[in-house]
Computed example of a mutant assay.
Amino acid sequence: MTATVQAAGTVRPASTVRRRIRPVRIILGLLGIVVALVWAFPVYWMLNSALLPNVVLQSSTPTWLPFGGSFDNFAAVFAGGTFLPALGMSTAIAGITVVFCLFFAFLGALAISRFRFRGRTGFVLAVLLIQMLPAEGLFIAQYKLMGSLNLLNSIVGVSVIYIAAVVPFTIWMLRGFVAGVPADLEEAAMIDGLSRTQAFLRITFPLLAPGLVASGVYAFLQAWNEFTVALVLLQDNSSQTLPLWLRGFIQASASRATDWGQVMAASTLVAIPVIIFFLIVQGRMTSGLVSGAVKG
């Protein structure tokens, strides 16, 4: 007969233990479901409102299900002709930011994790101190710098500022991943006949891929959702990122009484690329976050 032996030496049937543990698991499972529903409800309500006409949304009785809804709000957003240019602007800026941010941050993380050099401590402290600078205090300097370089209202100008803002924290993130891969692996591969470069590319780099994905997600979100820097540097209506476009869309709607159906449709369109991006990288991002927590 299966039994459970306690520390005091008494014997208690395993079925009794299971009966005591099972209600706790059920309660925790129900609590997890409730929390998940609370988190998911704003997203559902945004999508639900996007499918309903403004007359229904203005009713005092909420409509919980979009029965009888349509895609007219989405059609109205596309009919304006400004969404796709803003989408292209945001995609280009986010892509450039992610690529160059990962490149520079990866080199910086390798330097401070694998090498001992003069000024290493000062470099690490500088990376941390840069994060403490308020972004608002740099707006004037950034505007004058980009203006002197004729990079206002351009993808390159905004991308440079984003890269400079995101690289320090990304270096700090990648440092934990690089430190978590033992240098002995490369040395063993070099003993087997590989060069240092070959050992790094074949052994170390694949192990760092989850960390690069996790850091890339952070850089992507910072560039995709950033509003204030874009508001300062992109003042031309023809050069707007999606956050600026959404603000302008809401302001234009407010001038004729806010059409919340169209606003919610526009918000949904802004969120869709982020959801697709997460679905693509979510597997490696999860493993990267876990592995980065092992050693820092």
Rank of each mutant, 00 (worst) to 15 (best):
T121K: 11
R196G: 02
I191C: 07
L128N: 13
Y143D: 01
L133N: 00
I161D: 05
M132R: 13
D184L: 01
V160H: 10
V158N: 02
V178G: 08
F139W: 02
Q142R: 13
A111C: 09
V166C: 06
P182V: 06
Q131K: 13
Y143W: 11
A189T: 07
I163Q: 01
A189G: 05
I140Q: 10
G119F: 09
I130E: 04
I130C: 00
A126F: 15
K144F: 11
V127S: 14
V158D: 02
L151T: 09
P168V: 05
M132N: 14
M132W: 11
F177Q: 12
T204V: 08
I140K: 04
A188Y: 06
R118L: 15
R114L: 12
L194F: 03
D184A: 13
A164L: 06
G193N: 07
A165L: 14
L152N: 09
Q131R: 14
V158T: 08
R114P: 12
G122Y: 07
V158C: 05
M132C: 10
F123W: 12
R116P: 00
T204Q: 00
I191R: 02
I161K: 03
Y162S: 02
L194N: 04
S159A: 15
S113T: 11
P182W: 03
A165R: 10
Q198F: 00
G147L: 14
Q198P: 00
I171K: 07
R114F: 13
L138F: 04
A188L: 08
L110S: 01
R116N: 14
V181Q: 02
M173Q: 10
T170S: 14
A183T: 12
A179D: 12
L152W: 05
F123L: 15
G122R: 04
I130V: 09
A109E: 10
V160T: 11
F115A: 00
G180F: 06
V160R: 06
M173T: 08
D192A: 14
R116I: 06
L138H: 06
L145A: 13
G157C: 12
T121P: 00
A165D: 02
G193A: 08
